[in-house]
């Protein structure tokens, strides 16, 4: 190719590319996929399976369904879950039964792999969808999942 035809060819390829960008420039509103993130907090909904952080749901009687079987503690690869438990006397049967004192979740060590929730036999823990987890002090990332004064729901067996 000659010198000038080279230049024409080069400019031609640049214009082909600019036609693509120009199309989007003129239809900027139609194809916009940008999320106006901090402003759309009210309408932003995460997918239900999104793994944000581990929580323990409690019902209105302040009861959870964690029996303290420690399967989540064993499944966790990084030691994020620590369960302090004791045997307490069940008032109905009079027998000693395992019950959790504290279900400690070290969120700072968690990799959100999902093995603990998968391992839980009584669905006591589940994933919450919140993702704004920055804190100023890492001690705030250590959370006690069972609420104060809560106890295991009747009928949930190990």
């Amino acid at each position: 190719m000659g010198y000038f035809s080279n230049i024409y060819h080069g400019i031609g390829t640049l214009l082909t590319g600019m036609r693509v960008t120009g199309k989007y420039f003129l239809n900027a509103r139609k194809g916009a996929i940008t999320q106006q993130y901090p402003d759309n907090r009210d309408t932003l909904k995460m997918f239900e399976r999104f793994r944000g952080e581990v929580v323990m749901p409690h019902d209105e009687n302040n009861e959870h369904s964690c029996t303290g079987c420690q399967k989540c503690e064993l499944a966790c690869p990084n030691g994020s879950i620590e369960i302090i438990w004791d045997r307490v006397i069940d008032p109905e049967t009079g027998k000693k039964k395992k019950a959790i004192d504290q279900h400690i979740y070290h969120f700072g060590m968690c990799t959100q792999c999902g093995l603990c929730v998968d391992a839980c036999p009584s669905d006591a823990i589940k994933w919450a969808q919140n993702f704004e987890n920055s804190v100023y002090d890492r001690t705030q990332l250590t959370r006690i999942l069972n609420k104060p004064g809560s106890k295991v729901r009747a009928g949930v067996e190990e």
Binding site: M46, F47, R49, F50, R51, Q112, C113, G114, L115
Partner: peptide, 21 residues
């Protein structure tokens, strides 16, 4: 990926024996 596996990059959706969900 986020809807099915629960994460966008580090999916961890496979487990030995099948899929997590």
């Amino acid at each position: 990926f986020e809807e099915t596996c629960g994460a966008r990059l580090t999916m961890n959706y496979n487990i030995p024996g099948g899929l997590m969900e």
